[in-house]
Write a protein that binds this DNA or RNA. Sequence first.
DNA 1: TATTTTATTGAGATTAAGTCTCATTAAAAT
DNA 2: ATTTTAATGAGACTTAATCTCAATAAAATA
Lengths: 147, 147
Amino acid sequence: MRLNLNKIITMQLLKETLQREGLRYTKQRQEIWNELRSSNEHRDAEEIFFALRKRGLEISRATIYRTIDVLVKYNLIDKLDIGDGRARFEYNDKYLHHDHLICTSCGKIVEFHNDEIEELQKKIAKQHNFKFSHHSHQLFGICEDCK
Amino acid sequence: MRLNLNKIITMQLLKETLQREGLRYTKQRQEIWNELRSSNEHRDAEEIFFALRKRGLEISRATIYRTIDVLVKYNLIDKLDIGDGRARFEYNDKYLHHDHLICTSCGKIVEFHNDEIEELQKKIAKQHNFKFSHHSHQLFGICEDCK
DNA sequence: TATTTTATTGAGATTAAGTCTCATTAAAAT
DNA sequence: ATTTTAATGAGACTTAATCTCAATAAAATA
Ligand SMILES: [Mn+2]
Ligand SMILES: [Mn+2]
Ligand SMILES: [Zn+2]
Ligand SMILES: [Zn+2]
């Protein structure tokens, strides 16, 4: 019940965003968005491709990449670089922004949020007369299990 | 005089680092290190390759990439991602660490340092029982000239 | 609803950053 | 001076991501 309502709301968000931008609300874009919004993982393009294949969907890699670009552009998903040579993506929850702490040994990803850092970033951009748009912040180390 | 002394000291640092690690102090490694330590730019592998070519040095791209890996591994240079699909590198001044503020319009790079953020990062890693090793922090926005 | 318009898709070719192979070279140890 | 072996050079290879273009399907229009 709750999940279903959540899905309806987020699908509506996709539809409205695409309409506002004069883009089409296609089957493929719905499927990719649904895959990312309902997952807690940090997925790369290939993983999204196989997740959809597994669910019996015919889709091209080119469409995955193109759709990801659209979703990132309109802030529906975030791109992140954990240093493994592939871009990863996750649902962008506007009300719960977070950055990442990554274990360089096992790849574990821990999410963190720090209001002080968020504010300091804005302050730094302002000091240099930049109109701040976004940031990329990753901490690397060895996790408890790997120590 | 001062620059020359600075060069002697940093070349010595390379030599000692390589010897300590049982690696050879080769002509190519000296040239790549010298190129990076004497520049204020944020160079990618191809730019280093052409800078050395211009100075009449015969060197292979494979050696550029391999040497960069060694220099990053032993913290003589830092790797940075400004979001253009190529890894960039710069001299690592242990006494003057900095992160980057990048203009998404013209590509201008402004360096900044913030002690509070540096401390908060250590604190966050500690809270999650990580042995903190390094971080990657970029701010993106539109610079004064591009606004 | 049927027709028209045009953005999007699929399949595979292409690009390009980075890695790998292996014969040759040159540090550095003896 | 000789030996040992790590490093280099040249180019093949890998792979994430982009591009091309004919076919398809949203959505606008009749
Ligand atoms: Mn996350
Ligand atoms: Mn810098
Ligand atoms: Zn770990
Ligand atoms: Zn600018």
